[in-house]
Amino acid sequence: MTENVIEARNLGLSFETQDGPVQALSEIGLSVLEGEFISLIGPSGCGKTTLLRAIANLETPTSGSLTVNGMSAEAARLARAYGYVFQAPALLPWRSVKDNVKLPLEIMGLDDVAGRVSRNLALVKLNGFEQKFPWQLSGGMQQRVSIARALAFDPKLLLMDEPFGALDEIVRDKLNQQLLELWARTKKTVVFVTHSIPEAVFLSTKIVVMSPRPGRIIDVIDVDLPSERKLEIRETSAFLKIAHRVREDLKSGHSYED
C-alpha cells in the first residue's frame, strides 16, 4: 500500500510586508504519493517555490495542516527526510566536487562516505570529476553535483526548486532525460518546481497548476504518458494534449494579465 508522502490541507501562508500582508498561499490541498513525480507549475508569484519551501520547513505556513512522511514539516526536516536542490547549485566554492557531495554526510555523521559519494556521482554521470572545483565545471555540471549532494544521504523525498531554470535549452533537455532515468532507478518521490510547460509534462506523473494573487492550485493533471519517455515523446499528440491543457489552465488563471 502506498501512503501519502506529503499531505497538505487548507494550507495558507501570508508574508508581512511594508504594504501589508501578502497572501502567498491560499487553501492549498495537495497529496503526494510515494514514488510520484509531481511538478508545480505557474507564473512568478504564484507561490510554487513558497509551497516547496513550506514542505521543506524553510517557510512556516500561517494556517491549515501540512505533513511530510506522516509528521510535521519541522519534524521531517529534523529527521532529514528530504534532499533539496536549489535554483542555483549553491556549491561551496572551497570544496572539490567530492567534498561538496560529502558535506551532508559529514554533517549527519553517516558511514560509507566514499561509497555514497562515488555512487551518487555515478548517478549524475560525474565520475572522474571528483577533484575538480566548482568554478572548473559548467553550470549544468554544477547543478548535477548539487543533485548528487541532495541524494548523498539517500532521502526518500527529493525537492527541486527550478533546478534547471538557469540553463540553456539543450543542456536542460539532456538533464531532464537524466533526471527521469535517475528517478526510475532510485524510485524517489520528487516534487519539482518549474515554469516550463514541456519540462513539467515530460517529467511528471502529476502536474499541479498554480495561479497567483493569492497563490492557489487551479488544476491537478494526471500525466498518463508511459513511464519510459524519450525526448521524442514531446512530438506526440498525447503529450501536446496535456501541454495544451496546462497552457489553457495558466491562461484562465489570468496569470499574465495583471
Binding site: F86, L92, L103
Partner: peptide, 26 residues
C-alpha cells in the same frame, strides 16, 4: 548567501557545524 544557509538548514546542521563548515571558510 541565503541559499547556502538554507542548505545547512535542510541538513539540520547545528550552529557549530554551520560555523565550521560554512561561515568560517567563507
Amino acid at each position: 548567501d541565503v541559499m547556502q544557509q538554507d542548505l545547512m538548514r535542510t541538513y539540520n546542521a547545528n550552529a557549530a557545524q554551520t560555523l565550521w563548515k560554512l561561515r568560517l571558510p567563507a
